[in-house]
């Protein structure tokens, strides 16, 4: 229940930043994917059934505020969550640098996945350099913000009385 509260508040703030703040600052193409950071954090550090449902909800919430297809972000976020979970089972991830690398790869995967699933790969072939530069810039920005988000989640979790990291299996 405490995890749900923590991640609901975090998702609300992340959505507000992604939809309103970045838009009002004039940053339209370079939006840090904070919702994905939350999903990666769930996969890396919260190993229970609730985290899978929360990851699904994060994807659905992103769909409500992005693009025209419901299910696209949900699908990609769920894959990122499951990959993060599997990664955390094989690598020692109690380090924000690893989290940043995971988020960087996750953003690249999700953005390219979005292009693939929306049938925009033709555009990617003809304007590859520009599109990839945008994808990598977005991934880099999100990865840079990851330690901040992870720290805030840790502090929020401590306030709510959550353990520092779920038990490794």
């Amino acid at each position: 229940m405490r995890t749900v509260v923590l991640f609901s508040v975090a998702a609300f703030v992340a959505l507000a930043i992604q939809t309103s703040l970045m838009h009002l600052l004039g940053l339209v193409t370079l939006v840090p994917d904070l919702m994905l950071v939350l999903a990666v954090n769930l996969g890396l550090r919260h190993h229970n059934l609730v985290s899978a449902i929360l990851a699904f909800a994060l994807g659905y919430a992103t769909d409500a505020f992005s693009g025209s297809r419901i299910g696209l972000n949900t699908f990609l976020v769920m894959i990122v969550f499951l990959l993060s979970y599997e990664t955390s089972r094989h690598l020692w991830v109690n380090n924000d640098a690893v989290g940043s690398i995971a988020v960087f790869l996750a953003v690249v995967f999700k953005d390219l996945g979005t292009l693939l699933l929306t049938g925009a790969m033709g555009d990617l072939r003809s304007h590859a350099a520009r599109i990839l530069a945008q994808v990598f810039a977005q991934a880099l920005l999100t990865a840079c913000l990851t330690p901040v988000v992870f720290t805030l989640l840790r502090r929020g979790g401590r306030i709510l009385g959550l353990p520092a990291m779920s038990q490794r299996e």
């Binding site: 992604q18 970045m22 339209v28 953005d111």
Partner: peptide, 14 residues
């Protein structure tokens, strides 16, 4: 107009 898109890959406004 009160908001933009939640990701950088789509172009929508609220």
């Amino acid at each position: 107009v009160i908001g933009g898109d939640a990701t950088g890959m789509s172009r929508t406004i609220l």
